[in-house]
Simulated assay, not measured.
Amino acid sequence: MTAGPAQGTYRPRIGLTTYWQSAAWGVWDGTAAIVPGAYVRAVVDAGGSPLLLPPVGTDPSVIGLLDGLIVIGGVDVEPARYGAAPHPATVSQPGRDDHDLALTRAALETGTPLFAICRGAQVLNVALGGTLHQHLPEVREDAAQYQPAPGVFGSVDFTTEPGSIARQLLGKQASSPCYHHQGLDRIADGLCVTALASDGTVEVVEAAVGGPAGWTLGVQFHPEENGQDRRLFGGFVDAARTYATSRTAPERTAP
């Protein structure tokens, strides 16, 4: 597991997108901004300071306050965003799409380190003009393994490409918990595939040559659910720390 920062080391400010939906806390029951605790814990374990960004009152300029952005998992991206009709199994939240796409594009435009997880990787691909498979079991024979039952994570093994962030952080082969029924189809210009599952499912995308300038990583799986392996979060937080020190103090705090 990646160790936390040494005493006195700057803890980068990491924004995390959130759910916006019904929830219960204490004696209360209502609408709340929610982030599964595994994401927050992973950021803290890797040495970052988590800041939650709910999909209400979206302001893309908030990226100027951050050293890195994580776009977390969740419901499906609205198919109209990539020119498709909805599949019967597709469930989307247009307001959350507006938020996640706006923040993703702001991060890409400013070169802010971006870590896009599961739905986040799909948002990243769509933000740059790519498309999605809306229901992988219709495309891959054994794709049910990626979402074996409601609320039950599957596991995926994948192979990384030489020279990639994924290879640098994870080695040639790795595995991770996963939970998804959709996946990346046409990869957007500006991105390249750097890890595949054995059935050809795209597991990792990164910035291609001539693509986004900043540290950009999209993963189809759920690394936050593996508390014993913080290598991806460690690499991301290190990139955020480097990004922070490359800017002046006014740039880090400007709204």
Rank of each mutant, 00 (worst) to 15 (best):
G130T: 03
T90N: 13
F233Q: 11
A213V: 10
G210W: 06
G130E: 09
A32P: 03
T2P: 09
H222I: 06
A244E: 08
Q220I: 03
A195L: 08
T110H: 12
R241T: 14
G211Q: 02
G30M: 11
T90V: 13
T159E: 14
A127M: 10
D229R: 12
I70V: 15
G73N: 07
N226T: 15
P55I: 05
V40Y: 00
N125M: 09
G64K: 12
Y10V: 14
F153Y: 13
H133C: 05
M1Y: 10
V77H: 04
A24E: 13
P177S: 00
T159K: 00
H181W: 09
A116E: 01
L196P: 03
G111P: 09
G227D: 15
A149T: 08
V152G: 03
Q182W: 00
H133Y: 11
G111F: 04
V237K: 05
A144Q: 10
G111S: 08
A207P: 04
P148A: 00
A188W: 00
E78C: 12
D142G: 10
G74F: 02
P94F: 04
R231K: 06
S198V: 13
D45A: 13
P212V: 02
D45C: 13
G68L: 05
K172N: 11
L69H: 07
G4D: 08
G64Q: 09
T9W: 13
P5Q: 14
R41G: 10
N125D: 11
T110P: 01
F233L: 12
Q147C: 14
T194F: 00
T253L: 15
G30D: 15
E251C: 02
A84M: 04
F236W: 07
S198T: 13
R81V: 04
G48K: 06
W25C: 12
A38C: 14
P162T: 09
G68I: 09
P177D: 01
R186K: 15
E206Q: 00
A240V: 01
T58E: 03
T9F: 13
D98S: 00
D229S: 10
I165R: 12
T131L: 08
